[in-house]
């Protein structure tokens, strides 16, 4: 067990790492002040004409802050975050929705695909795990299908369902399917023999046995599989949105790139991370409800 002191140390260390990281970022992205030495009058006029430099209040040339080049520093990103969070649920146009709405779209898409995949994967896994011949028959197909990137399915899915909304959900579905299938099948086939013997002694029917013994006994393996599927689906949702042009936090990063707003890209990346952490925490809370201490 961690003592209070240890926890305090960990928190302090996190803060130090954060501050140092931001400081390094700040220093690395600092723009040097403009030095007109060595540049001819013509060159300066051309630069001013192009908008690279402007005259400040003392009639001295400085870099034009409107025409940022290179990676933006932390202050620029903080400004961007503040600006975006001012109207999180505002719709400015077809492609300019507030960040709150974008998160909502992504989470909705993610949950739909992940839940559907989980239900299908657990059913399939249980069937495979309970029947050795079925396991042997389906295993070659699963082995081939498993390593295929979910994005590889996208053109075929788009052609089949002819709807980017459903295609995005199906890509998430494909990403979340296999780890849960494999883990459930393993968990079910590895159930201790004596549990099944108790079920047989108590003359449990097929479904009673399934819900009272098989699923609870395989629950730890199923949850482990769901957790892997969860991460895989979260990784897939971002490129699916980008490629399909479906509004969401993943697509936001691409929109901002098209706008050449690098601060916006960084903001989108941070948002993807935060959404992932929140979803993962929620998942672990749910998983705790169905877990039990194993003997």
């Amino acid at each position: 067990m961690m003592t209070f002191r240890d926890k305090l140390r960990a928190v302090l260390l996190s803060i130090v790492i954060f501050v140092v990281g931001v400081f390094v970022w700040h220093v690395a992205t600092l723009r040097p002040s403009f030095n007109p030495k060595g540049l001819s009058e013509d060159e300066l006029m051309t630069m001013e004409f192009n908008g690279d430099i402007i005259r400040d209040e003392n009639d001295q040339y400085v870099y034009n802050p409107e025409k940022m080049r290179g990676i933006p520093g932390p202050m620029a990103v903080v400004d961007k975050i503040g600006e975006e969070l001012r109207h999180p649920f505002h719709k400015n146009g077809t492609n300019d929705h507030g960040i709150g709405l974008l998160i909502f779209y992504t989470v909705k898409r993610f949950i739909a695909g992940f839940l559907a995949a989980s239900v299908v994967a657990i059913c399939l896994g249980v069937l495979i795990g309970l029947s050795k011949p079925l396991y042997m028959a389906l295993n070659p197909f699963i082995q081939v299908l498993k390593p295929i990137s979910p994005l590889a399915w996208m053109p075929l899915l788009l052609y089949s369902v002819k709807d980017p909304v459903w295609t995005a959900i199906l890509v998430v579905f494909m990403a979340a399917l296999w780890p849960t299938v494999a883990n459930t099948a393993f968990g079910v086939s590895a159930i201790r023999k004596d549990y099944m013997q108790v079920a047989a002694l108590l003359e449990m029917g097929y479904f009673r046995r399934l819900f009272m013994v098989v699923l609870p006994a395989a629950a730890p393996a199923i949850i482990a599989g769901l957790r892997i599927s969860f991460g895989s689906a979260l990784v897939a949702v971002v490129p699916a949105e980008m490629l399909l042009g479906e509004l969401g936090v993943g697509y936001l990063s691409w929109i901002e790139w098209n706008n050449l707003d690098i601060s916006g890209v960084i903001f989108a990346i941070i948002m993807v991370g935060i959404v992932g952490v929140v979803l993962d925490t929620a998942f672990m809370k749910l998983a705790k409800v169905v877990s039990y201490p194993e003997t």
Binding site: R192, D194, Y195, Q197, V198, V213, P216, A217, A219, Y292, P293, E294, T295
Partner: peptide, 10 residues
Amino acid sequence: FQSFALMPWL
């Protein structure tokens, strides 16, 4: 059972 065979989820 020698292994007790209690269901750990109950």
